[in-house]
Amino acid sequence: MTSTRTVVRRAALAASAVTAALVLAACAGGDHADTASGTHPSPSTSADATAVAHNAQDVSFAQGMIPHHRQAVEMAGLAADRASSTRVKDLATRIEKAQAPEIRTMSGWLKAWGEDVPGTDAMDHSGGHGGGSSTAGMAGMMDQKDMDKLAKSSAKAFDSLFLTMMVEHHEGAVEMAEAEKAKGKYAPATDLADDVVTAQTAEIEEMNKLLGKSAG
């Protein structure tokens, strides 16, 4: 009798062990399925999501701001041997140092998105540029007559004209950046737009003060 009970008990224990093992296996499989289903996305999935996390506004912002920045850098480059005010020269240097890297950054975004990067060969200062797109009517852009006039001026005349033109140019950039902040989706682009608004608004105030001193 005892022997029979022992055999039955061992069989029951064995069956319990098999059941427990099956339950554990099922749980483990369930955890894996949750992970695969998106609870913890793979690195490649995250990278793909980041690559497409932008919208048409982000593309428009980058394609418009690149030629806009290029013109500001071109204008600033004239100050080195034309401006008479050291403060104007310092401002121009700061504009170049801030905007040139931003041009490279935005160009990198467009390449990553498979979008056209505005070219430099056909830049005409009237709103058009190379790369197959147009910036006609872009806020703050100078036309060719303005650029020629600035290039031909010097000393105090240059200082006054440069500051007047750059205030208008910066106001256009701020307008474009505000649109990106409101409608853009790509976080690095909206962050750069915020930086543009902050930095260029401060420079507009600085330039208006310099114009006030010149006028006085």
Rank of each mutant, 00 (worst) to 15 (best):
A215M: 06
Q99H: 05
G140I: 05
V52I: 06
N208Y: 00
L210N: 00
E115D: 06
D194F: 00
S214D: 12
M142C: 07
L192P: 00
S153R: 13
P101C: 10
V174H: 02
Y186W: 00
E96S: 14
S44K: 03
D146Y: 03
G131C: 04
M138D: 00
D58I: 01
A199L: 06
A193T: 07
A17Y: 14
T105M: 08
A11C: 12
G127M: 03
P43G: 07
E175I: 04
G77L: 08
S126R: 08
K97E: 14
K213Y: 01
P188A: 02
G216F: 07
E102N: 10
T35P: 01
S154D: 15
A62C: 04
M1Q: 04
G38H: 11
A187T: 06
E205H: 05
A112K: 15
T39E: 09
T45A: 12
R5W: 08
F158C: 04
Q200V: 00
L163N: 10
M166R: 13
G184H: 03
K183R: 10
Q99T: 03
T93G: 09
A202C: 02
S16Y: 13
D159P: 12
Q63N: 11
T39A: 05
L78A: 00
M207Q: 05
V88I: 09
Q144E: 08
T45W: 11
K209F: 00
H125M: 12
S44T: 11
T2M: 03
K111M: 09
M1I: 07
W109P: 00
S60R: 06
V196Q: 03
S214Y: 15
F162D: 09
A80C: 02
G172C: 12
V167T: 13
V167S: 07
V23F: 15
V59G: 00
K152S: 13
Q144R: 12
S134E: 03
A14L: 15
T93R: 14
S214G: 11
D48Q: 09
D34E: 14
K213Q: 06
T120D: 03
A26F: 14
T86D: 12
G114V: 04
T45K: 12
K149A: 14
H40R: 15
L161Y: 13
M176R: 06
E168W: 05
A62W: 02
A112E: 10
K111N: 13
